[in-house]
Design a protein around this nucleic acid. Structure first.
Length: 485
DNA sequence: ATGTTC
């Protein structure tokens, strides 16, 4: 294994370059956003090798990038950003991830944490009862063919039309919860079958619904614009994606692309980077299917939002209006988007792969809701369930350097297997309870995999993206109640 | 992440 210090060139305190000499077929360098303390972890995990492999993709522009929460993933690292040219460049399912449009949604209540006194356990239980979770879990919704078309093309908009939530929610969802260019016909029968019973369910792994309390406010004006008024205010985080449907779409198209690559004369250093030209039949079909899965995920978070509101209403004795639960924002961190970016002073359309990386558009960007035009896009970065979650905003620096992208979470430090070996789920739940954090989870081994010890400290990740100027902290919350698969 | 190796 190459030594990190000989492989990486330090650019400044938070930026490291992996030069093209690292691997002979790299088309661009790698850029890693990290503190010096994070580097040993990045080499141990062989993230550098993955960053270098991504840098070999046809049509990759500027650099293969890694955010400070980077860790090993399927083909591409999780925490990776790669933009490709629409002409001659490729799109790769591995650059999006299996959980297409995994993302985070944040709701604000008008409640102070004292409103939860004596009710927290009951509230967590109500959320647990309203929101099915766990591996392979099905919900109460049965999607027939017609409804499935509605979900795949309409996303959260379909869900609101069906009575799940409020039209206002759509205003504060990326793409209004309904990305254009979805092609339901590109979603296979098997993917549809897997998705037909899972809408409105949380899933497992790191997916959760969390009740958080505002703990610090760093930018009062931006916070106020987001409806975050003071410490002690109760917020609700929702983290989930496209469940089995998105997984199956990824699976299906990896196979399609493996088969198509030789026909386009494409070779990649790792089969897991299977890809096809963005403009090819296969590339187009994948993007159409991926957008359909993305819409499914937005519908999923929308329905879970509706059920979370019902859970709050059933426990908190207040009218809907005084509970609030308005949407602050909903943003994806596993998706490929065709976006316009400035390259050497010229606007270019690029296919931006964000895999475990959050869009972080700056103030004034045309794709932001009017409300956020002055402050920039809300960036939602949950930490592990024992520490903090951060609300930030996008910046011009991110737009210029990382195609408008930043980190997405704390970043896994220990593999799921290793975490299960060294962490006792029951002990961790007890420890959290001692700190006033109520957790309801389907499995204790699942809890062990998601324990704080398995992750980096989110604050160290936030320090890097802040220091590098990729985003700006607005506020943070501490968890008080969590449901997990 | 995932009906955790169709």
């Amino acid at each position: 294994m190459k030594r990190v210090n000989s492989a990486l060139e330090q650019i400044d305190r938070y930026r490291w370059r992996l030069p093209r000499e690292y691997r002979q077929d790299m088309r661009v360098p790698g850029i890693i956003y990290a503190s010096r303390e994070m580097l040993p972890h990045i080499t141990e995990e062989n993230v550098l090798g993955q960053v270098a492999n991504v840098a070999c993709l046809p049509g990759i522009i500027r650099a293969s990038m890694a955010m400070p929460d980077v860790h090993w993933g399927y083909g591409f690292p999780i925490g990776g950003v790669a933009a490709t040219d629409l002409e001659g460049g490729v799109v790769s399912p591995g650059g999006v991830g299996f959980d297409i449009n995994c993302g985070v949604r944040l709701l604000r209540t008008r409640l102070d944490s004292t409103a939860l006194d004596g009710k927290l356990e009951k509230l967590v239980r109500a959320l647990w009862d309203c929101i099915p979770s766990g591996l392979g879990t099905t919900g109460i919704i049965r999607l027939g063919k017609r409804d499935m078309e509605g979900v795949l093309t309409g996303g959260a908009c379909w869900a609101v039309e069906q009575g799940y939530g409020r039209y206002d929610d759509l205003l504060y969802t990326e793409e209004n919860g309904q990305v254009a260019g979805a092609d339901p016909d590109a979603v296979g029968l098997h993917a549809r079958e897997r998705g037909s019973l899972q809408l409105g369910t949380l899933g497992s792994g790191n997916h959760f619904v969390e009740i958080g309390v505002v703990d610090e406010i760093y930018e009062p004006e931006a916070a106020r614009v987001m409806g975050i008024e003071k410490t002690g205010q109760v917020l609700v985080w929702i983290h989930t994606g496209s469940r089995g449907l998105g997984h199956q779409v990824a699976d299906d198209y990896i196979k399609v692309m493996l088969e198509a690559m030789p026909r386009y004369g494409i070779s990649v250093p790792d089969r897991q980077l299977a890809c096809a030209p963005v403009s090819s039949k296969e590339g187009n079909s994948y993007l159409g299917a991926m957008r359909s899965a993305a819409n499914y995920a937005w519908a999923n978070r929308q329905i879970i939002t509706h059920h979370a509101r019902q859970a709050f209403a059933s426990v908190i004795n207040a009218c809907e209006n005084s509970i609030g639960l308005d949407l602050v924002y909903d943003v994806s961190h596993n998706i490929a988007k065709i976006e316009s970016h400035s390259l050497e002073g010229k606007a270019r359309s690029l296919c931006v792969h964000r895999k475990g990386a959050t869009r972080a558009f700056p103030p004034g960007h045309a794709q932001l809701p009017e409300l956020y035009s002055a402050i920039g896009q809300p960036v939602l970065v949950p930490g592990d369930m024992g520490r903090y979650s951060y609300i930030l905003t996008g910046t011009q620096t991110a737009m210029e350097e990382t195609f408008g992208s930043t980190c997405h979470g704390a970043g896994r430090m220990k593999s799921r297997k290793e975490a299960k070996r060294i962490i006792d789920g029951r002990e961790f739940v007890k420890e959290l309870a001692g700190r006033g954090i109520v957790v309801q989870a389907g499995s204790l081994s699942g809890i062990a995999e998601e324990a704080s010890l398995a992750y980096k400290d989110i604050t160290s990740v936030i320090d890097v993206v802040t220091g590098a100027g990729l985003s700006k902290p607005v506020a943070r919350t501490r968890p008080v109640g969590v449901i997990k698969g």
